[in-house]
Design a protein around this nucleic acid. Structure first.
Ligand SMILES: [Mn+2]
Ligand SMILES: [Mn+2]
Ligand SMILES: [Mn+2]
Ligand SMILES: [Mn+2]
Lengths: 224, 224
DNA sequence: TACAACTTTTAGATTAATCTAAATATATTT
DNA sequence: AAATATATTTAGATTAATCTAAAAGTTGTA
């Protein structure tokens, strides 16, 4: 049983994580520009790092073609995401943080290196499957639970959905949801849907109100 | 109310912490070599960093004379130590780590930046005054509880002490103590003391055994 | 007091991560 | 197929943290 043969820096881990997320959205290689945008850096910086990660066999890189994670790279990315989400659960469940306050702290905690720590934390939290934003937590093997979920914007008039997650999880969006009393587990009924712009009137806790398509596009629901 | 005006790097925080500890041991300025030794770096690296920290007004530095923390520097050092020790309590109390396993993980966690986090952690742990090794935890203001404690080696024959801390807290030493059933709170009776080399025979939980002066020099006890 | 031993600083390199500006490759239009 | 626009890479700097080797300062002792 051998542990970490190489130590990834914070920067390297952040790149792997970003590429992991981008691969989920778009199949095939991930472009330099896409990485640069998601990480708020310059494309030239991305090229440098991607070349270094390719040398370390964390991803396959072809000049002008983009990057694709190897098994090794994908595992490390999943580990970082596992840590991020477990720490978010800790912050919300144990330290009573609100779901819109935990992301930045988790961005730091996700880089703490200790397998033992994260596995004990996992147990301490009761081996949760999802984080406070409804995102699945990879297990020790890097595998995460898949669920049947759709965007609220996909529902038709009179359909009912249970909120199971958010696509965007910026503070502003989460705070908007709070104001409207929407959180994970909330039952949402589509009372009306505007053909023209996709806006909706929804019912939440016996109250009806209007939401734009942008909102509906960022809320995941489960239908029965 | 303003928060952090400047962000300290991990390296800078580690230097401040090391200097803080060294100032406790020896009054006055702390020498370049002493810092280098305690941080396992080269004196030339220390000079560079100490000059930078002086520019940032974290310490007062006179060439060839050494360094002395300012209030600002001392406060940041105390904060890092506060975080280190609170995380150690968390690891032992909540995640059931053993006291000899937590230091390295705390070395990483002590650099997580969030006042809110550390204050909530403090509450979650019940605002402990001491860490798992018996070291005092600075409060939000950087002040720590002082206790009457002496080294076991200072006790005379037939005196009784309660173990309240360790001076050394390396894994090897802590594991030695475990083998001898000594931990924080253990009652220790000096059954005999060798004039020649300071070694002792002590009684712990109805068992008598021999310890060297080195051991006695690294155990803090409280006498009634 | 003088010099040897030790301590500390300076000079010059190195590595990681980032940037700007310029060069090069690819894609999209005429 | 050019020409133009966009994407990507390379070249060259910069900053932080570290090192080695050499220079400079301090100290303690003969
Ligand atoms: Mn997050
Ligand atoms: Mn999340
Ligand atoms: Mn420690
Ligand atoms: Mn400790």
């Amino acid at each position: 049983m051998h542990k970490l043969n190489f130590v990834m820096t914070f920067a390297e881990e952040n790149y792997l994580k970003a590429i992991f997320h981008l691969e989920l959205e778009s199949q095939g290689e991930v472009s330099t520009n896409a990485i640069a945008e998601s990480m708020e850096t310059k494309p030239s910086s991305v090229t440098d790092m991607v070349q270094k990660l390719a040398e370390k066999k964390m991803l396959v890189y072809k000049r002008y073609k983009g990057a694709q994670l190897t098994e090794k790279g994908r595992k490390i990315a999943a580990d970082v995401i596992r840590k991020h989400r477990l720490w978010e659960v800790f912050l919300v469940e144990k330290l009573n943080f609100h779901w819109d306050e935990v992301h930045d702290i988790a961005e730091q905690l996700e880089h703490i290196k200790s397998e033992e720590l994260i596995n004990r934390l996992d147990d301490f939290l009761g081996n949760p499957d999802f984080d406070p934003h409804g995102d699945p937590i990879p297990n020790e093997q890097g595998v995460m639970k898949r669920t049947e979920k759709k965007l609220l914007s996909e529902l038709k008039k009179n359909q009912i959905g249970i909120c199971v997650g958010v696509k965007e999880s910026s503070g502003e969006f989460l705070q908007y949801l709070d104001k409207k009393n929407i959180s994970i587990g909330t039952r949402i009924t589509v009372m009306g849907k505007e053909f023209f712009d996709g806006s909706m009137v929804i019912e939440v806790q016996n109250e009806n109100f209007f939401i734009s398509k942008t909102i509906a596009d960022n809320l995941y629901v489960q239908t029965s």
